[in-house]
Simulated assay, not measured.
Amino acid sequence: MGEKFLTHYQVLGLSRTATEREVKIAYRKAARIAHPDRGGDPALFRRITEAYEILADPAKRQKYDKSYGAGSRGAGSNGAGSNGAGSYGAGRSPSGPGSRPDAGSGSGSGSDSGGFSGFSTRRTQEQRNTAGDPAIYVPAYEGLAPGETPLLPRPTAAQPVHGAPRKRGVFGAASRLAREARTAQLIMQQVQPSIPAARLVNGLTSPRSNGYLDHVLVSGYRIAIIGSMLVPDGAFRWDGNMLVHGNKVAAPPQLIPATRQFQELFPECNVTAWVCVHSNTGNLFEPVIDYARGTEPDGSNTVNVANAARFVREVKQFLASGPSPNVVDLSVLDRLLGGMY
């Protein structure tokens, strides 16, 4: 991830669970290195000071965490970087497997060729890892300097599922929780076993709004924002906006704004939205959905709608077809965990 997208925690070389005392100690250590009076970089020193002012104030820190800890986008090339933050353990950019993801597509295209500026279809040896390979952590825990704090504790990073659907509101809470539980169980049982690096995060706040997201599934540098629906028996048609059943229509969860916001917050990732449509019968192959031209759920659309069986197949393909599907990027996962409500 580019240096200008470092989080405040990375700038100070801290994990998200750092105590107030650890924040103060890290700030003093970093400030001594970067202070202009000691020959340090003024831009880096400003980043360090800004990070401390946010993280040392409990209210500001809580608000920052809920914003997914987005790094400053206005920092220049001399921001927290090679001659500063890296010297005391903060914000090392990924190297090795996963160092150049299929980032910034914006459209959520599932293709690894065409339309990606700066992305070559020629795959290097490092990019030939498959989704079924053991998870690789970036940055590697083995590469930590003595006394350096990892972005996430290793047991946390190794945990495949984080958070749980939580009761919110009054009306429809029971059915919504049941629906979310079915989708989460489907992911845990049929997607994650074949993709060791896949991490499921349940119960997130929607960025820059008061809404909520059911699930986010991340593997390598691909993020799937997931919602779900429960519909009556029968055949449906998906026109790209609505599920149509006879003379009735059913609107899917409104995931497009969150998907676009996630793409801005995680420019290193390819972000798309998925809606898993459950049937009352419990049959994974129902309901039967007919698709209008150009709306097939293959990951090329901003929102992809499918019944449970096709959802599993297409999401696995979407995650597995990324350039580094077996990478767990600790920076991405750390920021996602900060967005849980």
Score class of each variant (00 low, 15 high):
Ala26Ile: 07
Gly76Glu: 14
Val231Cys: 02
Glu148Gln: 11
Ala43Glu: 13
Glu50Gly: 07
Asp57Thr: 11
Arg61Tyr: 10
Met188Cys: 15
Phe119Leu: 15
Ser331Ala: 08
Ala174His: 15
Ala235Gln: 13
Phe266Val: 03
Pro232Gln: 05
Gly79Glu: 01
Ser107Leu: 03
Gly246Thr: 06
Leu14Cys: 14
Gly143Glu: 08
Gln189Ser: 15
Leu243Phe: 01
Arg28Lys: 15
Asn270Met: 04
Val216Met: 02
Ser279Ala: 12
Arg28Ala: 08
Gln62Tyr: 11
Arg32Tyr: 14
Thr205Ser: 07
Arg313Met: 09
Arg260Gln: 12
Lys66Tyr: 04
Gly132Asn: 15
Thr295Arg: 03
Asn304Val: 06
Met242Ala: 08
Asn129Leu: 14
Ser175Val: 15
Ala164Asn: 13
Leu243Tyr: 06
Val216Gln: 00
Thr121Ser: 11
Ala43Ile: 13
Ala306His: 06
Asp239Arg: 01
Asn304Leu: 09
Gly71Cys: 06
Tyr212Arg: 03
Gly169Ile: 04
Gly338Glu: 06
Gly69Thr: 02
Pro297Asn: 03
Ile33Asp: 13
Ala85Asp: 00
Pro42Val: 05
Thr19Pro: 01
Ala235Ile: 14
Ser77Pro: 07
Gly172Ser: 04
Arg16Met: 13
Leu213Asn: 00
His35Ala: 12
Pro36Gly: 07
Glu180Ala: 01
Pro58Asn: 04
Ala103Pro: 08
Arg179Ile: 01
Leu336Ser: 12
Val170Gly: 08
Ala224Leu: 05
Met340Gln: 08
Val244Phe: 15
Ala70Cys: 10
Thr302Gly: 10
Ala250Ser: 14
Gln261Lys: 09
Ala308Ser: 10
Asp37Leu: 14
Ile289Phe: 09
Leu336Thr: 05
Phe311Ala: 01
Pro146Met: 06
Ala75Pro: 10
Gly299Phe: 03
Met1Lys: 08
Arg16Ala: 08
Met340Val: 07
Ala164Met: 12
Ala51Met: 00
Ser321Thr: 09
Cys276His: 00
Lys248Phe: 11
Ala85Phe: 01
Gly89Val: 10
Ser175Cys: 11
Phe311Met: 01
Glu148Ala: 11
Ala51Arg: 00
Ala30Pro: 00
Tyr221Glu: 03
Asp133Gln: 08
Arg16Asn: 05
Ser300Ala: 10
Thr272Pro: 02
Ala292Lys: 03
Gly39Cys: 10
Thr19Val: 04
Val191Thr: 06
Arg182His: 08
Pro97Arg: 09
Gly69Gln: 02
Phe116Val: 14
Thr272Leu: 10
Ile54Lys: 11
Arg313Glu: 13
Asp239Glu: 06
Phe5Val: 05
Leu243Val: 10
Gly84His: 11
Ala251Glu: 13
Gly71Asp: 09
Ala43Met: 12
Met242Gly: 15
Glu286Thr: 09
Arg222Val: 03
Ser72Val: 07
Pro196Gln: 09
Ala140Gly: 10
Leu284Glu: 15
Ser113Tyr: 15
Asn247Asp: 13
Ser117Arg: 14
Gly86Gln: 15
Val11Cys: 02
Lys29Met: 06
Arg21Glu: 13
Lys316Val: 02
Gly13Met: 02
Pro160Ile: 07
Met188Ala: 14
Ala145Cys: 09
Asn202Met: 13
Pro207Cys: 04
Arg237Ile: 13
Tyr212Met: 05
Gln10Ile: 01
Leu177Lys: 08
Trp274Gln: 00
Pro146Leu: 00
Gly299Ser: 05
Ile289Tyr: 11
His245Ala: 11
Lys24His: 07
Ser331Glu: 12
